[in-house]
Amino acid sequence: MAIFGNLNHMSLGDLLPLLSVQDGALEIFNLEQHPRVTLYFSGGLLQCLYVGGRPAEPLQARGIVGHLVAARRGSFEFAPGARTRRCDRPLGWPLDRLLLATVTVQDEIEGLERSLPHPDTVFALTAERAPEDARLSDFWQRAAALLRRGASARELARRLGMPLEHARYYMLKLRQLELLAPVRARGGQERRSSAAARLLGSLRRRFFGDRQAWNH
């Protein structure tokens, strides 16, 4: 049976239990932050997620599902029996667990809002071990190359195609595991501090150097 409607009347969280017993494709469009998103279901599993016509990596797919569960604007249409498009890495996520994990992360992000790092603070890796948690491990593997040289949550969100709040959340988690540390505050604070330090050093050399000369 075809299902269609609007997310402000029926959220993705309400849809997923209905789709757990059907095979097909759910198209979601008219979204604010994403182009057309297509989710393919088979055997009670989310097998593949396409965004803008391209398959999403697991890390990106988690972020998009989280955004869709919270979205209250957008239209959807479910085509029963639609065959899954080719995925190099099928997701194979049970819908009940996916919904629970997504809601849990969204609630945790809201609860940690004041603790999340500023989007423009630059962080770098302090260790080369991947975390055991699968979600954090996916983020670590995708972001490690960027974090070795230093990157902000805003840059990671843009480069990895994920929501900014999710990038901030994952970076907070890695910092709590002592795998990540800030190297420069937002707005180039480190550069300003360095300039101030150079100026202070110059003044010290000028005045204290002269005082030492007077003492002699």
Results as ranks from 00 to 15, higher is better:
residue 129 R to P: 01
residue 178 E to K: 11
residue 131 P to D: 03
residue 161 G to I: 02
residue 155 E to K: 08
residue 161 G to H: 02
residue 163 P to N: 09
residue 169 Y to F: 13
residue 156 L to D: 01
residue 150 G to Q: 09
residue 155 E to R: 08
residue 128 E to R: 15
residue 129 R to H: 12
residue 117 P to E: 09
residue 116 L to V: 07
residue 138 D to N: 09
residue 135 R to S: 14
residue 134 A to D: 14
residue 173 K to M: 12
residue 109 I to L: 08
residue 158 R to G: 08
residue 163 P to E: 08
residue 176 Q to M: 12
residue 129 R to E: 11
residue 129 R to Q: 14
residue 120 D to E: 15
residue 158 R to W: 08
residue 110 E to Q: 15
residue 169 Y to W: 11
residue 151 A to I: 01
residue 143 A to P: 03
residue 135 R to F: 15
residue 127 A to Q: 13
residue 119 P to S: 14
residue 144 A to Q: 12
residue 164 L to E: 09
residue 138 D to L: 11
residue 147 L to S: 00
residue 164 L to H: 06
residue 167 A to I: 04
residue 146 L to K: 09
residue 128 E to G: 12
residue 162 M to W: 02
residue 119 P to G: 11
residue 155 E to P: 02
residue 166 H to S: 08
residue 128 E to F: 14
residue 153 A to M: 07
residue 171 M to D: 00
residue 112 L to Q: 03
residue 125 L to Y: 00
residue 135 R to G: 13
residue 131 P to K: 06
residue 134 A to H: 12
residue 118 H to R: 13
residue 178 E to H: 14
residue 166 H to Y: 03
residue 124 A to F: 07
residue 109 I to M: 11
residue 121 T to I: 14
residue 128 E to A: 15
residue 145 A to T: 13
residue 110 E to N: 12
residue 146 L to V: 07
residue 166 H to M: 12
residue 138 D to F: 01
residue 156 L to P: 02
residue 134 A to Y: 10
residue 162 M to N: 00
residue 165 E to F: 03
residue 169 Y to K: 02
